[in-house]
Amino acid sequence: MSDILVSEQSAPGPGGSGRPSGRLLEVDDLRVEFRTRDGVAKVINGVTYHVDAGETLAVLGESGSGKSVTAQTIMGILDTPPGFVTGGQVRFHGKDMLRMSDEERRRIRGEGIAMIFQDALSALNPVFTVGFQIAEQFRVRRGMGRAEAKKRAIDMLDQVKIPNAKGRFNNYPHQFSGGMRQRAMIAMSLALDPEVLIADEPTTALDVTVQAQIMDLLAELQRERQMGMILITHDLGVVADVADRIAVMYAGRIVEEADVYELYAKPAHPYTLGLIDSIPRLDEKGQQLRTIKGLPPNLMNIPPGCPFNPRCPMAQPVCREKVPPLLQVGPARASACHFAEELVNRV
């Protein structure tokens, strides 16, 4: 990689530190707002995370936490308007993608970073066959001929374990079942052998037995290809099974980041703690579920101080005044809570 390019491109953006660090993909102090008729919604308010080759970062959050918008910004598919990036950087191999030309970004999509979506039926084009849509990439991006592209596409369908890949090549998306469609989309996103795969709720629309198949498949393909993976989900169960690290998002911020084992054993943010306590578990017979009171904040009117303070059982006056920064609270873990130390050190 060219060092000159890096130094040219990584002039510090507003808020971004701009240091090249040898990471594969880094999001640095990203800020995004949606300007709508009703007002400005601050959807992402300084998100920083990274993913390296071969590791899985899970981005965990509820609806409206900004986890999908972050991914859309990375991919350059944010709807503008209403969405606008107001600060920060997204660096791929140290190079800020937000300052690239459209042509440069296009080259990264598919080959550098690819994405799969929750709803495969609407992500696939209904008027072209599944095979054509995969083969198209080989023809356009790799300059292959029709026959060779078809061979490669069938090979991809085979790799995602679609039975009778050859026969399925000419099927349209609606002829596939939900699980098969998701496999086809995975085949499409991995066709150009990306370094990073962003999976946005890849199994949320699927039944649990199919979900297990798809998660197995993703894990296997990731291992083989040493891809970095960003898994965006709200499901604490799926995360526990596959993630290496977890970033928990709330109201457009990362409120906690930790290794998967530490996060479940000892959450360092009251929101994470509340989430883990409020899910019913298959292996537990229980009484009343503990809940997080109230609702997530309106992003047009985020409360001052810590955005979680109105719902937090630990809230003190300081929480209403000062936004807690995301600080280290141990080796490789960080929390954005004024009382993180106390949470971590409790018995």
Partner: peptide
Amino acid sequence: QALLSAVPVPDPTQR
């Protein structure tokens, strides 16, 4: 049995 075994449990130590 298959259905129950496929449900992810939110506990990484059970992996």
